[in-house]
Amino acid sequence: MIRYKLVLDSDAEEFGGHKRLNHDTDFFTANDPWDNRRCSLMVYIPCRTAFVLAKVD
């Protein structure tokens, strides 16, 4: 499993958003294939929101 952290999101207060995403959340890949790829990742994404995840070493 690979761990990712949320580093930027358009729902943040500084961009006029509603602060619905928690930047302390860790996201992990799963060994479940999806769309012809080896691993998958499930995330919560509020509507009209974009975010960037960064791989944690």
Rank of each mutant, 00 (worst) to 15 (best):
M1R: 05
M1H: 05
M1S: 11
I2K: 08
I2C: 03
I2S: 12
R3S: 07
R3G: 00
Y4N: 02
Y4C: 04
Y4P: 02
K5E: 14
K5P: 01
K5M: 05
L6S: 11
L6Y: 06
L6P: 04
L6Q: 11
L6V: 08
V7M: 08
V7D: 07
V7E: 13
L8P: 05
L8D: 13
L8S: 15
L8K: 15
L8G: 08
S10P: 07
S10V: 08
S10E: 06
D11Y: 03
A12Y: 05
E13G: 06
E14V: 15
E14T: 10
E14N: 12
E14K: 15
F15Q: 08
F15N: 07
F15Y: 15
G16W: 07
G16Y: 06
G16T: 07
G16K: 08
G16V: 12
G17I: 14
G17D: 11
H18G: 08
H18R: 13
H18T: 10
K19R: 13
K19P: 01
R20E: 10
L21G: 01
L21D: 02
L21W: 06
N22A: 05
N22T: 05
N22K: 07
N22G: 00
H23F: 11
D24S: 13
D24P: 00
T25S: 01
D26C: 03
D26S: 10
D26Y: 10
D26L: 11
D26G: 00
F27Y: 15
F27M: 03
F28T: 00
F28Q: 01
F28N: 01
F28A: 01
T29N: 04
T29Y: 02
T29E: 11
A30K: 07
A30L: 08
A30D: 08
N31F: 05
D32H: 04
D32F: 05
D32L: 10
D32C: 04
D32K: 09
P33K: 09
P33C: 11
P33E: 11
P33D: 06
W34Y: 14
W34M: 13
W34H: 13
W34N: 05
W34E: 08
D35I: 10
N36F: 15
N36Y: 13
N36W: 11
N36A: 14
R37C: 13
R37T: 12
R38Y: 09
R38D: 14
R38T: 04
C39V: 02
C39P: 00
C39F: 03
S40F: 00
S40P: 00
L41N: 02
M42F: 11
M42R: 15
M42T: 13
V43W: 12
V43Y: 06
V43D: 10
V43T: 11
V43H: 09
V43P: 03
V43A: 10
I45P: 00
I45Q: 04
P46E: 07
R48T: 11
R48I: 08
R48A: 15
R48N: 15
T49D: 09
A50I: 03
A50N: 04
A50T: 08
A50G: 09
A50E: 04
F51C: 09
F51N: 09
F51E: 12
V52Y: 01
V52Q: 02
L53P: 06
L53D: 06
A54P: 02
A54S: 14
A54D: 04
K55F: 02
K55T: 06
K55Y: 04
K55S: 04
K55W: 02
V56N: 01
V56P: 01
V56F: 00
V56S: 02
V56E: 10
V56Y: 00
D57A: 13
D57S: 14
